[in-house]
Protein backbone atom coordinates (compact mmCIF):
# COMPACT_ATOMS: atom_id res chain seq x y z
CA UNK A 1 0.00 0.00 0.00
CA UNK A 2 2.75 2.38 1.00
CA UNK A 3 4.64 1.42 -2.14
CA UNK A 4 1.81 2.25 -4.49
CA UNK A 5 0.75 5.43 -2.70
CA UNK A 6 3.93 6.97 -1.27
CA UNK A 7 2.38 10.37 -0.49
CA UNK A 8 -1.39 9.94 -0.14
CA UNK A 9 -1.97 13.51 1.06
CA UNK A 10 -0.07 14.95 -1.90
CA UNK A 11 -1.98 12.75 -4.35
CA UNK A 12 -5.30 13.80 -2.84
CA UNK A 13 -4.47 17.49 -2.97
CA UNK A 14 -3.28 17.18 -6.57
CA UNK A 15 -6.58 15.50 -7.43
CA UNK A 16 -8.48 18.32 -5.72
CA UNK A 17 -6.40 20.89 -7.63
CA UNK A 18 -7.10 19.16 -10.94
CA UNK A 19 -10.84 19.11 -10.27
CA UNK A 20 -10.80 22.77 -9.22
CA UNK A 21 -8.95 23.85 -12.34
CA UNK A 22 -11.34 21.99 -14.60
CA UNK A 23 -14.38 22.90 -12.48
CA UNK A 24 -16.02 19.58 -13.02
CA UNK A 25 -16.75 16.39 -11.13
CA UNK A 26 -17.15 14.13 -14.14
CA UNK A 27 -15.77 10.58 -13.80
CA UNK A 28 -13.26 11.12 -16.57
CA UNK A 29 -11.66 14.04 -14.79
CA UNK A 30 -11.62 12.13 -11.51
CA UNK A 31 -9.79 9.23 -13.15
CA UNK A 32 -7.33 11.53 -14.91
CA UNK A 33 -6.69 13.52 -11.72
CA UNK A 34 -6.12 10.36 -9.71
CA UNK A 35 -3.62 9.12 -12.26
CA UNK A 36 -1.81 12.45 -12.25
CA UNK A 37 -1.76 12.54 -8.46
CA UNK A 38 -0.22 9.06 -8.19
CA UNK A 39 2.30 9.77 -10.95
CA UNK A 40 3.47 12.98 -9.29
CA UNK A 41 3.72 11.21 -5.94
CA UNK A 42 6.21 8.83 -7.58
CA UNK A 43 8.13 11.80 -8.91
CA UNK A 44 8.31 13.08 -5.33
CA UNK A 45 9.82 9.75 -4.22
CA UNK A 46 12.74 10.37 -6.54
CA UNK A 47 13.25 13.84 -5.11
CA UNK A 48 13.59 12.28 -1.63
CA UNK A 49 12.13 14.97 0.58
CA UNK A 50 12.43 14.66 4.35
CA UNK A 51 9.51 12.80 5.79
CA UNK A 52 7.97 14.41 8.81
CA UNK A 53 5.04 13.31 10.87
CA UNK A 54 2.66 16.05 11.90
CA UNK A 55 1.62 15.95 15.52
CA UNK A 56 -1.01 17.86 17.44
CA UNK A 57 -3.51 19.13 14.93
CA UNK A 58 -4.93 21.57 17.45
CA UNK A 59 -1.58 23.35 17.46
CA UNK A 60 -1.74 23.73 13.67
CA UNK A 61 -5.11 25.44 13.91
CA UNK A 62 -3.86 27.82 16.60
CA UNK A 63 -0.74 28.64 14.57
CA UNK A 64 -2.82 29.31 11.45
CA UNK A 65 -5.00 31.68 13.44
CA UNK A 66 -1.95 33.50 14.82
CA UNK A 67 -0.49 33.87 11.33
CA UNK A 68 -3.76 35.25 9.94
CA UNK A 69 -4.01 37.82 12.74
CA UNK A 70 -0.36 38.81 12.27
CA UNK A 71 -0.75 39.21 8.51
CA UNK A 72 -3.69 41.58 8.97
CA UNK A 73 -1.95 43.53 11.71
CA UNK A 74 1.33 43.89 9.87
CA UNK A 75 -0.45 44.86 6.65
CA UNK A 76 -1.85 47.85 8.51
CA UNK A 77 1.50 48.60 10.15
CA UNK A 78 3.46 48.47 6.88
CA UNK A 79 0.87 50.60 5.12
CA UNK A 80 1.14 53.29 7.77
CA UNK A 81 4.95 53.16 7.54
CA UNK A 82 4.85 53.61 3.75
CA UNK A 83 2.31 56.42 3.85
CA UNK A 84 4.23 58.35 6.51
CA UNK A 85 7.73 58.19 5.05
CA UNK A 86 7.68 61.93 4.48
CA UNK A 87 7.16 62.84 8.13
CA UNK A 88 8.85 59.93 9.89
CA UNK A 89 12.06 58.34 8.63
CA UNK A 90 11.96 54.57 8.22
CA UNK A 91 14.39 52.78 10.46
CA UNK A 92 14.67 49.32 9.03
CA UNK A 93 17.41 46.90 9.88
CA UNK A 94 18.69 43.37 10.00
CA UNK A 95 18.02 41.06 12.93
CA UNK A 96 19.97 37.87 13.58
CA UNK A 97 18.18 35.18 15.53
CA UNK A 98 19.52 31.97 17.01
CA UNK A 99 16.92 29.32 16.35
CA UNK A 100 17.01 25.69 17.33
CA UNK A 101 14.67 24.34 14.63
CA UNK A 102 16.45 21.86 12.40
CA UNK A 103 13.62 20.09 10.59
CA UNK A 104 13.70 21.05 6.92
CA UNK A 105 9.95 21.27 6.46
CA UNK A 106 9.53 23.30 9.64
CA UNK A 107 12.20 25.73 8.45
CA UNK A 108 10.53 26.06 5.06
CA UNK A 109 7.20 26.79 6.73
CA UNK A 110 8.82 29.33 9.04
CA UNK A 111 10.40 31.01 6.01
CA UNK A 112 7.05 31.22 4.25
CA UNK A 113 5.31 32.62 7.33
CA UNK A 114 7.98 35.25 7.92
CA UNK A 115 8.06 36.40 4.32
CA UNK A 116 4.30 36.32 3.85
CA UNK A 117 3.81 38.74 6.72
CA UNK A 118 4.64 42.19 5.40
CA UNK A 119 7.31 43.84 7.50
CA UNK A 120 9.60 40.86 7.94
CA UNK A 121 11.59 39.17 5.21
CA UNK A 122 13.65 36.02 5.51
CA UNK A 123 17.12 36.49 4.08
CA UNK A 124 19.41 33.68 5.10
CA UNK A 125 19.73 30.70 7.39
CA UNK A 126 23.09 29.27 8.30
CA UNK A 127 22.70 25.58 8.91
CA UNK A 128 26.00 25.16 10.77
CA UNK A 129 25.46 27.85 13.38
CA UNK A 130 21.67 27.98 13.32
CA UNK A 131 21.63 31.75 12.86
CA UNK A 132 18.70 33.16 10.93
CA UNK A 133 19.03 36.57 9.34
CA UNK A 134 15.83 38.51 8.72
CA UNK A 135 15.14 42.06 7.64
CA UNK A 136 12.58 44.09 9.53
CA UNK A 137 10.99 47.19 8.04
CA UNK A 138 9.93 48.93 11.24
CA UNK A 139 12.68 48.09 13.66
CA UNK A 140 12.15 49.76 17.02
CA UNK A 141 13.73 47.17 19.26
CA UNK A 142 15.54 44.14 17.92
CA UNK A 143 15.10 42.09 21.08
CA UNK A 144 11.32 42.43 20.85
CA UNK A 145 11.35 40.87 17.39
CA UNK A 146 13.59 38.03 18.49
CA UNK A 147 11.29 37.24 21.42
CA UNK A 148 8.18 37.53 19.25
CA UNK A 149 9.43 35.14 16.59
CA UNK A 150 10.78 32.63 19.07
CA UNK A 151 7.60 32.60 21.13
CA UNK A 152 4.97 32.96 18.47
CA UNK A 153 6.31 30.85 15.62
CA UNK A 154 9.31 28.79 16.61
CA UNK A 155 7.83 27.15 19.70
CA UNK A 156 4.61 25.96 17.99
CA UNK A 157 6.53 24.78 14.92
CA UNK A 158 8.86 22.81 17.15
CA UNK A 159 5.88 21.24 18.85
CA UNK A 160 4.22 20.38 15.54
CA UNK A 161 7.20 18.98 13.68
CA UNK A 162 9.64 17.57 16.23
Amino acid sequence: MRYWFPYPLLSLSLLALWLLINQSLSPGHIVLGTMLGIAFAWVMVNLQPDKTRLKTFGRIVILTGHVAVDVVRSNIAVMSVILRTKTRPVNSGFVAIDISLRDENALALLACILTATPGTAWLEFDRQTGVLLIHVLDLQNGQNWIDLIKRRYEAPLKEIFE
Partner: peptide, 11 residues
Protein backbone atom coordinates in the same frame (compact mmCIF):
# COMPACT_ATOMS: atom_id res chain seq x y z
CA UNK B 1 16.87 50.83 0.35
CA UNK B 2 16.39 47.60 -1.56
CA UNK B 3 15.76 45.58 1.56
CA UNK B 4 13.07 48.04 2.61
CA UNK B 5 11.44 47.80 -0.80
CA UNK B 6 11.44 44.02 -0.46
CA UNK B 7 8.51 44.35 1.97
CA UNK B 8 6.34 46.48 -0.31
CA UNK B 9 4.88 43.96 -2.83
CA UNK B 10 3.67 41.68 -0.03
CA UNK B 11 0.86 44.14 0.63
Amino acid sequence: TFYGRLHAPTL
